[in-house]
Amino acid sequence: MVSTILIVIGVLFNLIGCIGLIRFPDVYNRLQSATKCGTLGTCSILAGTLFHFGFTDAGIKAIIAIPLIFFGATVAAHALVRGAYHFGIKLGDKSVKDDYKDVAK
């Protein structure tokens, strides 16, 4: 029962992440939604797997995958944002502040 709830929450968050990926205006905001919702959604699905299988080999693997996804998603998001900025993609029209402009050159 707990596992079903966790997996449903996870799928919902992944769905919201995808909607955000389409709705947000520029690459930086899109990455925000992709990393945050994607990570918690996937971690929640993995936690659901753990509750379903208990502490067997499949459950333990699900636990280990959580820090891997955590570090993978954060490092990938950072690299993509930085790469996009250096490639010359501008911040969207709604942006109010850009402190990075002077340093990036």
Partner: peptide, 22 residues
């Protein structure tokens, strides 16, 4: 963080004010 971003995604007016800060 997730509820915050989910709220901004689903809100019809999309309340965002992005920027890069130091």
């Amino acid at each position: 963080a997730n509820f915050d971003v989910a709220y901004r995604v689903l809100h019809p007016a999309m309340p965002i004010k992005p920027g890069i800060v130091k």
